[in-house]
Design a protein around this nucleic acid. Sequence first.
DNA 1: ACCCAGGCTATCC
DNA 2: GGATAGCATGGG
Length: 293
Amino acid sequence: MAEFRQRGQDITVEVTRDFDLFKIFDCGQAFRFRRQGSEVIGVAFGRVLRMSQEGQLLTIYDCTAAEYLGGIEQYLSLDMDYGEILEQLDTDAVMSAAIGAGRGIRILKQELWEMLITFIISQNNNIPRITKLVEALCVHYGKPLSYNGEILYTFPDPFALSRATEAELTELKFGYRAGYIVGFVQSVLDGGFELSRLSQLDTPEARKYLLGVKGIGGKVADCILLFGMARYEVCPHDVWVKRIFSERYNIDDVSEKKGYALATAKWGKYAGIAQQLLFYAERYEGALQAAAQ
DNA sequence: ACCCAGGCTATCC
DNA sequence: GGATAGCATGGG
C-alpha cells in the first residue's frame, strides 16, 4: 500500500497523516520501545528495530526490502488504509474527539507469544510497571543483541522462558502473576496449549481457548486477540472503557457483556481500533471531556 | 493510611 | 448465571 524504497541500509516509507510513529509506540500496546529524540527504538522479531519519522517520511534503519516486505510492513500496518477506517468510525462527537487526539495510531501486529505473556503480566497493573516486568523477563531470559555499542535483549521464547522458576519470578517482583506465567509456559512446552491451534480458531473459539488458561480472563484474552492476532473487532473491556462509557457516553454500569454489545453496535469490525483511540484520548490526552454531553 | 493500575480466581448465592 | 473478597507490587 504505502510506497517504500531502499536507501543505503535503510528503508524509507511515504506515509500519510494516519501514521504517527510516536503515538503508535506510546499508546499502551507495546512495552518494549522507547523514544530517543526523533527516534523510536526497541526489539521485535528477535532484532533491533529503530525508526524515525519526519512529517510523511518514515525511516526504518538497518532494514532490507526483504525484511520490510517479510513482516515489518504488516507489523506497522502499512498495508492498511487507516484513513478509511477512521472515516467509518467517526460517527459521534466523542469518537470524533478521540480521532482528533489519536489520529496516527495503528494497532501493531505484534508476536502472539510475546502478547500472551505480556498481557498476563498486565492484569491489575499499571503501564510503567508492566514495562519494567517485561523488560526484566527479557534481560534475564532473552538473548542479548549488541547494537551501536549498547545491549538490547530479545523477548524469550517458550523454551528460554521455561528456565524461569516461580521463585525467580517472585524475586523479580511478579507477585501473584509468577505462578500464572510458570504454569502457562509449562503447558505450552508440554503441548497442553498450542499457539498454532489458537491462531487457526475463529475469534469466539479462540477467546474460549484463551479463557482456559489460568491467569487469562476476558480482558487479557481480548488484548491478546487484538494486539497479537489482529482481531480488530475485539474491544477489550478495561477500566478505561467502562469509564468512557459511563462518563463520556453517559451509559452507566456497563457489564462486560453489555460493553461488547455496545462496542459492536457502535463500531462493528473495527471496535478494537475505536477502543484504542478512545483509550489513548482519555488516558494520555484528557481529550474527551469537551465532547461528552 | 488509602486508592488505583489495560483483572483474575475462588467462592458465595 | 451474577456479585464479592483476596491477591502482589509500587506510585500517587
